[in-house]
Amino acid sequence: MRNVLIIIKKQFRDTLKNKTVLIQFVLFPIMTLIMEHAIELDGMPECFFTKLFSVMYIGMAPLTTVAAIISEEKEKNTLRVLMMANVKPWQYLTGVGIYVWILCMAGALVMATGLERQFIFFYLAVMGTGFMISVILGGCVGIFAKNQMSATSIVIPVMAILSFGPMLAMFNGTLEKVVRFIYTQQLKGFLDGMSFECVKGESVGIVLVNACLLIALFFLTFKRRGLE
């Protein structure tokens, strides 16, 4: 556990100086604050931008940052130095995952400022679940990719499906039938309902299946590729 904390501490030191990764964490919270305050249209659902950007945030930030952090360490051979210093792969991956999750949750807290107080716990629970699943997916990409370039080329299409799929599904019924099997679409449904009562068993099932499949993919990728 000590090494996990060291990795988290290292990430805090490093990422605060890494603008490309930092922007992933702050982009959507800032956009949400601006849009919620700047745009008001008749008939627009309450907290429309918060809900919309929250789903995009779940699909983008954890995925891209975890993949970027791991692939950068691989490319620059700092990961090998950590391994040689006796940091175990699970300690490293857990440290990076927790770090990204914490920063994303901090972003979600900022985004939640526009919500009514009674919805905040539910909102954070949904966001926390989504971030966790995306972190696992980002870990798969980071482990699979040999360098930052290949990580980016994998992340972009996956991110587009996860983030833009639910948004585009609002305008296209056929697409909605397809993307309903993706966890981000179900999480969007949760956020639209904004209460535990509105959460359907089927939706929870889809999210759980997504999580289990990604966990299995994570272990399979790790078994086949290893961390280095």
């Binding site: 060291i6 030191r13 490093d14 890494n18 700092t78 090998r80 130095v81």
Partner: peptide
């Protein structure tokens, strides 16, 4: 071929390994 953490100072680079 071993890298260093480019964005961190020399001290911060060593702090990571001092902790480990």
């Amino acid at each position: 071929q071993f890298g260093v953490y480019d964005r961190l100072s020399c001290t911060d680079n060593l702090k990571i390994f001092a902790d480990i």
